[in-house]
Simulated scan of single mutants.
Amino acid sequence: MRIALHQTRSQPRTPGAPGLTALENAAREAAARGARLLVTPELSLTGYALPDPAQLAEPAQGPGAAAVSRIARQHGVAIAYGYPERGEGGALHNSVQLIGPDGAARANYRKTHLYGPYEAEHYTPGDQLPVQAELDGIRFGLLICYDVEFPEAVRAHALAGTDVLLVPTALMRPYETVAETLVVARAVESQLYVAYANRVDREGEFDFAGLSCLAAPDGTVPVRAAGSGEALLVADIDPAALRASRERNPYLADRRPELYAH
């Protein structure tokens, strides 16, 4: 199965009308290159450094979801996109939603590990892990940026059978080591693919590092952005290679959880 990672900068947006031109162009190109799934960065519908994310927040089935659904159906490609979600009781969540190639919502995940004072000020952490959906016989899981830096979060996905972990991201400088080293380690230690789609350019005080990549369970990186510019990366997920890697590296089977329950 071929997937695409959209490394991009923020697009113009206004309340009720998220900037979708770049997303539509990326979906068109991804489909033309044979991809079945497009992964976009954290908060891709609105931008990350918003003065007040509540002004652009919407429910999971709001106008942004409807627009993404139309794009997915038109191009026959599933889309994982980030957005500020207005949840129950007015709580604001940093969320990612997976829309299938038929335009139907498949899964919605709220970031469980908030990063830094900016996120803590504006968002409420989610409390559900793992969140998964199946597409073309492959089980996909959802995390967001800082979440993947916690081995427990990734291992929870591995134990629940996730094959490919989708991680919309807003990784900032000077933390490039997360994309270059830690994401690859997570793929190896939990024996799954990690699709890591980052932002680029500056927003307010934040300088995003790019370095989007697909990390494979054998420690290879089938594709990585060469620099910090915009890019659409395309690579293949190979279920047979995943099965073979899990046989060679039986970390999950060899665990002794009674020794490290906490």
Rank of each mutant, 00 (worst) to 15 (best):
S95N: 10
P168E: 07
R36W: 00
G82R: 13
N249R: 10
I71Y: 02
L232T: 07
A241T: 08
L232A: 08
A235F: 13
L5K: 03
R106E: 08
S44E: 06
L37Y: 04
E85V: 01
L192M: 13
D102L: 13
Q74A: 13
G19P: 12
G204W: 12
E134C: 09
L135P: 03
T177H: 12
G137S: 06
Y81H: 13
Y109M: 11
F150I: 03
E203H: 02
G161K: 06
L242H: 07
R36E: 01
A241E: 14
R255V: 00
G34I: 05
T40S: 09
A27Y: 09
L192R: 02
G204A: 05
G227F: 07
N25K: 10
D136L: 10
A158H: 04
L211P: 00
Y48W: 14
Y146P: 00
P125N: 08
A32T: 05
A158L: 06
D207H: 15
H93W: 07
F208V: 14
A65H: 14
E121C: 00
A120H: 13
L143E: 05
T21N: 11
L50S: 02
G219P: 09
Q61Y: 04
L259W: 07
V164P: 13
Q97V: 14
Q191F: 01
A240H: 05
R33D: 10
A226W: 08
T14S: 04
R110I: 01
A4S: 07
A22K: 05
Y109W: 12
I237H: 04
A133P: 05
R155F: 07
Y115K: 04
T181L: 14
P18E: 02
H157S: 05
L211Q: 14
A72L: 06
R28E: 15
Y251I: 00
P53W: 12
D147E: 14
T8Y: 00
P59V: 06
L233V: 09
P101T: 11
R110C: 02
R33Q: 15
A179H: 13
A216L: 06
Q97P: 00
A26N: 03
L129R: 09
V148I: 14
V200E: 04
T21Q: 15
M1T: 11
G141S: 10
Y115R: 06
R199D: 07
E230T: 12
P84L: 06
L45S: 10
R199I: 11
P59M: 03
N94D: 13
T124I: 07
Y83V: 06
E247C: 00
M172H: 02
V164E: 06
A231P: 05
P174T: 08
V178F: 11
G19V: 12
D147Q: 09
R246M: 10
S245H: 01
P239G: 03
H157A: 01
R2M: 07
P130C: 04
N94Q: 15
R248P: 08
P15W: 04
P15A: 02
L165T: 06
Y109C: 02
E176K: 09
Y175N: 09
D102T: 15
G204H: 11
P15C: 01
G229M: 10
